[in-house]
């Protein structure tokens, strides 16, 4: 477990030592600011984060988080540093969890940059702190899932571009297309596809509803992707 901290610390450091992190922060600030501004400061706009969270921010995260995560394992494979890493006394799950935690902590930094928005909303009226807490919890869980899924793809290939494209595809499918696809099927396939729809689980957090169903969904799916990533690394050893 101590190794997870060491690895997460290195990853977090690596983010701030490379230009990618700053580019990602810039893109995130610009697009989320745009989504916020267009949702609130237009005629008839609503003084809440709801418009932004319901669609735009989720879309932004579908693109931003894979870009943050793609290098975590792919880059190690490409540079060969995976060899020194995986011959150090650390387990494969330490590696996956450490990298996940590093990206996750960076994501929390991104969420902190969003704090000015509720402060701006206070100009128009009181902000419901419980609702805001619910929004943030939803975002934390959503981000964890996206990072875990992208991390799995990063463990699949040494080509960062392939990793990021696969992540885009899967996340977009799960988030936006799953509901629509469900309508095409009957019976249990429909139920599974509906349950897999990230957006329908996330929407309740936006509404301010805390449902254990959604907690279980996000946490278990995140765990599943991390488990796949560990298995993928173990598989690599045999190839």
């Amino acid at each position: 477990m101590r190794n997870v901290g060491v690895l997460a610390h290195r990853e977090l450091g690596a983010y701030f030592l490379s230009p990618i992190a700053y580019a990602v922060i810039a893109i995130f600030l610009f697009t989320s600011g745009l989504a916020f501004g267009l949702g609130v400061f237009t005629s008839g706009g609503e003084a809440s984060l709801r418009n932004m969270l319901n669609f735009w921010l989720v879309l932004i995260l579908v693109f931003v988080l894979p870009m943050l995560t793609m290098r975590l394992i792919s880059e190690e494979m490409r540079n060969g540093t995976i060899e020194t890493l995986m011959t150090a006394p650390v387990t494969d799950s330490d590696v996956v969890l450490g990298k996940f935690l590093g990206a996750f902590l960076f994501y929390l930094v991104l969420l902190i940059t969003m704090l000015p928005y509720p402060l701006l909303l206070r100009m128009y009226g009181p902000v419901d702190m419980k609702l805001l807490g619910c929004h943030y919890l939803g975002l934390v869980l959503l981000g964890a899932l996206y990072i875990a899924a992208s991390l799995f793809f990063s463990a699949c290939t040494k080509h960062q571009v392939i990793a990021v494209l696969l992540s885009f595809a899967l996340l977009a499918l799960m988030t936006f297309a799953s509901d629509a696809l469900a309508q095409l099927f009957e019976g249990w396939t429909r139920v599974v596809l509906q349950q897999l729809s990230v957006q329908s689980h996330f929407r309740d957090f936006v509404r301010g509803m805390l449902d254990t169903n959604h907690l279980v969904f996000f946490i278990s799916l995140t765990g599943l992707f991390l488990f796949f990533a560990v298995k993928r690394l173990e598989m690599r050893r045999w190839q």
């Binding site: 290195r10 450091g13 690596a14 540079n79 540093t81 995976i82 060899e83």
Partner: peptide, 10 residues
Amino acid sequence: PESTPLYPEM
């Protein structure tokens, strides 16, 4: 290892 892999940013 053969190619001496290291993290260039560190």
